[in-house]
Design a protein around this nucleic acid. Structure first.
Ligand SMILES: [Mn+2]
Ligand SMILES: [Mn+2]
Ligand SMILES: [Mn+2]
Ligand SMILES: [Mn+2]
Lengths: 219, 219
DNA sequence: AGCTCAATTTAGAGTAATCTAAAAAATATT
DNA sequence: AATATTTTTTAGATTACTCTAAATTGAGCT
């Protein structure tokens, strides 16, 4: 029997937040990620723990079990494959696909996803530059560095973003800072990483907050 | 604010069942269609009535309002477009797409559906031969007659099925009776419409129950 | 070691969707 | 017209998910 959308969203949130060593995630971090109350999170952590998808001890945080990790990774795979479909096949823009994929990722059918993956040509990255896990849960890592950490004079290519909210991506569209663009840093403020850079002949100013969410492959 | 999946499924069921003159549908008919209890149906009819998506009087059945009709028709459009996608683009078979489309139809995004429609080339019929409403809710009707009503000697082409359950469609696959096939009736039992017919050189026997769910365009 | 405060959990409650069993209304039969 | 049967509704519960407010726990600081 499958999981509910809510259970799946929690697993995905825990995976996203568990970058740390042992991968333990706090109740409040999950609540913030899912924009829900800490009390709701506690309830759900008990349920997921009963189903052995996470390990959880009161007051000690949660981490994914192997089963939980596998399920969460599959959700990420589905989310990102659908995003590729929406952009590549349907011609939607990178700023409008995340919310839709947030629903599509819950469609239940392994066969569907394998077919979709095949149809799309086994893409390795989604429209935001995030890696797509394969059917075995493995994915490609790339050397990348936040734009905010580049020194004046350094050059590179935009290969990803760390944030997929519509407002952020629309902002980048307006600045012309989309995937694949070549950039060169002119100045980078020591204090708050306010940047000026060169993109396709134009000069551009960016806040440190924005620059920290743009990932660069240096050239 | 959007409707829940349950509310949408009820609207779709009412549309499907309201072929009659005024289009009034009984509580039990809906319960049977959705495989749920009559008590649950009554609860939901009250809710949909409050939202003015149906007209409903106790003990008198329900019918769609214009708003309800519009929403239900859009759901049918989405369901059938997704079925076309699954078969045409992903190469799935007509017997495995209905259940998946039952979920996909609830994805919320008008823009997505318009893009999908465009991507698929504005198809007029789904993989079961059912017409696909356009964005305005209009669809093409075709002259068709149940195979069970053909007389011995009559010929035609399979242009649709009235039932999209997997088991039924798999049965047709085994018999080689798929969309587009040419058939010729040899015998048709007066009492129960047990048929024998000619398909691609082979002779085939069908129960009346099956024959009543296969739609033919006579030639 | 004890105190303080933030993080977390528990308590209690609400909404949505569903069920079974009992009551009421409508329809069919005699 | 009265009675029997079927259909539909109501009553009362259950499960899943969520919330706010109150209680508890644990970690950091004197
Ligand atoms: Mn996304
Ligand atoms: Mn989601
Ligand atoms: Mn279908
Ligand atoms: Mn559905």
């Amino acid at each position: 029997m499958g999981l509910s959308y809510a259970e799946e969203n929690y697993l995905k949130a825990i995976l996203k937040l568990s970058g740390s060593p042992d991968g333990t995630v706090s109740t409040n971090a999950i609540a913030a990620q899912l924009d829900t109350s800490a009390a709701s999170v506690t309830d759900m952590l008990k349920k997921l723990s009963d189903k052995e998808l996470i390990t959880y001890q009161r007051y000690k945080g949660a981490s994914l079990t192997d089963d939980g990790q596998r399920i969460a990774t599959t959700l990420v795979r589905k989310h990102r494959l659908w995003e590729v479909f929406l952009v590549q096949s349907l011609g939607m823009t990178w700023d409008e696909v995340h919310e839709i994929a947030e629903e599509l990722e819950h469609i239940q059918s392994d066969r569907l996803i394998d077919r979709l993956d095949h149809f799309l040509g086994h893409p390795k990255f989604d429209p935001h530059g995030d890696p797509i896990p394969n059917a075995q849960g493995k994915y490609t890592l790339r050397a990348q560095i936040p734009l905010s950490e580049l020194k004046p004079g350094q050059e590179g290519i935009v290969i990803g973003v760390r944030e997929d909210e519509t407002s952020f991506l629309k902002h980048l569209n307006e600045k012309g800072l989309t995937l694949g663009k070549s950039i060169k840093v002119i100045t980078n403020d020591d204090y708050d990483n306010t940047l000026s850079l060169q993109v396709e002949g134009h000069e551009l100013n960016l806040s440190g907050k924005v620059a920290r969410n743009i990932m660069i492959k240096t050239t």
